[in-house]
Design a protein around this nucleic acid. Structure first.
Length: 119
RNA sequence: GAAACAGACCGCCUUAUCGCCUCGACCAAGCCUAGCGAGGUCGGGGAGGAAAGUCCGGACAACAUAGAGCGCCGUGCUCCUUGAAAGGGGAGGAUGCUUAGUGCAGACAGAGAGUGCCACAGAAAAUAAACUACCUCGACCAUGUUUUGCAUGGGUUGGGGCAAAGGUGAAAAGGUGCGGUAAGAGCGCACCGCAUUGUUGGUGACAACAAUGGCAGGGUAAACCUCGCGGGUUGCAAUACCAUGUAUACCGAGGCCUGAGCGUUGCUCGCGCAAUCUCGGAGGGUAGGUAGCAUUAGAUAAAUGAUAAGGGCCGUAAAUGAGCUUUGCUUUUAUUGCGGUACAGAAUCUGGCUUAUAGGUCUGUUUCUUUU
């Protein structure tokens, strides 16, 4: 299985991100919010966001973003289960004000995706 | 050997799995094929002492190869030294504090240029004056007496003296003593303090001494301000190029070298460009790539990691062990357990400053202790 995370899988354009915020569907579970819109590309693209208002320290924000990225990277097969034929642009927002450990973030992420699958 | 203080330095490691950025070599789908290359393999490199705050410098870039005045900002004891500068180091001076130490502290120029402010208390808060009190002279009253007079720690009232006293306050216009006087006063004198001038010593900040003057005066200048010294302004979101047909763009009217307007630093000048101007109208578009940008970190939604296991280091002393002065102590150059492992994340580079920081190492000084 491919657990890589290349540049083409990153959502970079500020314009596209604000489109996702405007048009995307929203789903909140625990301390994570996910927004997503279908794209017409060959791969999913994702952006991670940890608000400065919630986590003031740059070191902690970096750590959280790295854990979010790992959670996404190691759980990529889940996305293909949910959308076997489509590819999505996603934005993942972290809302807790403290640093959660990897296991709790992963559990929360899987919960969000499962509730997506049921809907 | 221990403690305190000062300074300098270091500031976790290993393995496994899965990943990220970048450079080089090789392979390579494909394409508009001397090239460009998605992707792949192998190898190299990949956060800090503060990368932080953005407080001072410098490089670099634009504006006149950066010019004038005003404004504004920074800075402020002396000498030596280091440095391109900012800044650092050493030695010293005055001031304040002081536990009196070979100690500590500071933007350490000016409050004897001006302006402002200073609660409460106090008679008064700054030119001084009024008030209380004090001394004295006159008048009247009272009392005493040796009775046309004299006297009084007496009262009332009017005049004069008044830089002393008023015990408040952070601060009250030199202090102490002697003389002087009706009472007092630098009114006079001695010593101390202050100011000015001089001499001597010192490279100097400054110090000592002498003479002269009866003698300025509260605090606050990281309040305005004055003086000395320094600084042109804006910053890599600078700036250049490419692309989006052009943004000083297109259409209509007006204006036009006798200089409108624009650019240029906060303003004025100066300088540069010079019809790109004014009014109205019509629609659209860009806001991203390359250079800047890195002598092996180098991105551009921003890499330098995530997870797991183990080990260091520090603390603790609960359990076990060991020892002893044996029911309580000691011991981690015993084991296990438990806890901690900080502050913090490059974005043009660079020198400083400031602030944060678990734990550790080294050096020096002082004190205590042990051994020889």
């Amino acid at each position: 299985m491919d657990y890589r995370f290349k540049k083409t899988e990153r959502l970079k354009s500020a314009e596209r991100i604000s489109e996702v915020f405007k048009q995307g569907l929203v789903l909140k579970k625990g301390f994570l919010i996910i927004r997503f819109v279908e794209n017409n590309l060959d791969a999913h693209r994702i952006a991670f966001s940890v608000p400065k208002r919630k986590v003031a320290s740059a070191v902690k924000r970096n750590l959280i973003k790295r854990r979010l990225r790992e959670v996404y990277r190691l759980n990529k097969p889940l996305l293909d289960e949910i959308w076997p034929d489509k590819k999505m642009d996603l934005v993942l927002l972290y809302l807790a004000s403290e640093v959660k450990d990897y296991e709790r973030i992963e559990a929360n992420y899987q919960k969000v995706l499962r509730s997506l699958n049921n809907a």
